[in-house]
Amino acid sequence: MPRRSDMHGFTLIELMITLALLTIVLGIAVPNFTAFIQKTRLQGQTDDLIAILQYARGEAVTRRATAEVIVDDDGPWVVRVAGQSARELSHNTSQAKMDADVASITYRANGTATPALITVCRDDSPETAYVVEVRASGAPIRHERGKGADGNALTSCTL
Rank of each mutant, 00 (worst) to 15 (best):
A86M: 06
G75S: 11
K97Q: 13
Q95S: 08
V102A: 04
G75R: 12
V78Y: 02
S104E: 12
T93P: 09
R63K: 13
N110C: 05
W77N: 00
Q84V: 13
D101F: 11
E59R: 13
P115S: 08
T119R: 14
R80N: 10
E88S: 11
T66C: 00
E127N: 13
G58I: 00
S85Y: 00
A109H: 07
V71C: 05
A82P: 00
P126D: 13
Y130G: 10
G75M: 05
N110Q: 07
V79H: 00
G111P: 04
G111R: 03
A82K: 02
H91K: 14
R122G: 02
E127M: 05
G75D: 14
A82V: 00
E88A: 05
A96L: 04
E88K: 09
R80M: 10
R57G: 03
N110L: 12
A86R: 13
D123G: 06
A103K: 12
E88L: 08
M98E: 04
A116C: 11
A65L: 07
T106V: 15
V102W: 02
A109E: 12
I70M: 11
P76K: 15
V79M: 02
T106F: 01
E127V: 10
D72F: 09
R108N: 11
A129C: 06
V132I: 15
R108D: 04
A65T: 14
T112R: 05
A96Y: 02
E127W: 03
R57L: 01
T62H: 04
S85P: 03
D74A: 15
L89H: 10
A109F: 09
V81R: 01
